[in-house]
């Protein structure tokens, strides 16, 4: 059976769902970052697949920029995470209630 675009898109969606589940269920900030990486990667698969099956390079370009954004996100996010950890010795989401009105 020939692998088509929809196979890739469905795979991408399933991985995105796993990422969503991670984002919602994990309370540890580091795990949350991992789940975010999964989300970004799943989208990248979709971009690359569409690019291939349409014969258009735009998809790859987008995947490329997504990777760049993921890299900067990790850099800044980890920096903030370290500062937070140094202050509170915890990186549990439920402890971060400073947004509470």
């Amino acid at each position: 059976m020939e692998i088509g675009l929809s196979h890739y898109l469905i795979l991408s969606t399933i991985l995105f769902g796993i990422g969503l589940y991670g984002v919602m269920s994990r309370k540890n900030l580091l795990m949350l970052f991992f789940a975010t990486e999964i989300l970004l990667n799943s989208v990248n698969i979709g971009f690359a697949a569409i690019s291939h099956y349409l014969g258009d390079l735009t998809g790859q370009m987008f995947a490329f920029f997504v990777i760049a954004i993921a890299a900067s996100e990790v850099a800044v996010g980890l920096g903030l995470l370290v500062v937070w950890f140094k202050r509170h010795n915890r990186i549990d989401l439920d402890e971060m209630m400073s947004m509470r009105g």
């Binding site: 760049a68 954004i69 900067s72 850099a75 800044v76 920096g79 370290v82």
Partner: peptide, 16 residues
């Protein structure tokens, strides 16, 4: 994107 990466790098160094 290149500038953004540079900014992120500096930010990461400063914060951590």
């Amino acid at each position: 994107a290149a500038v953004m990466l540079l900014v992120a790098m500096i930010a990461g160094i400063v914060l951590a």
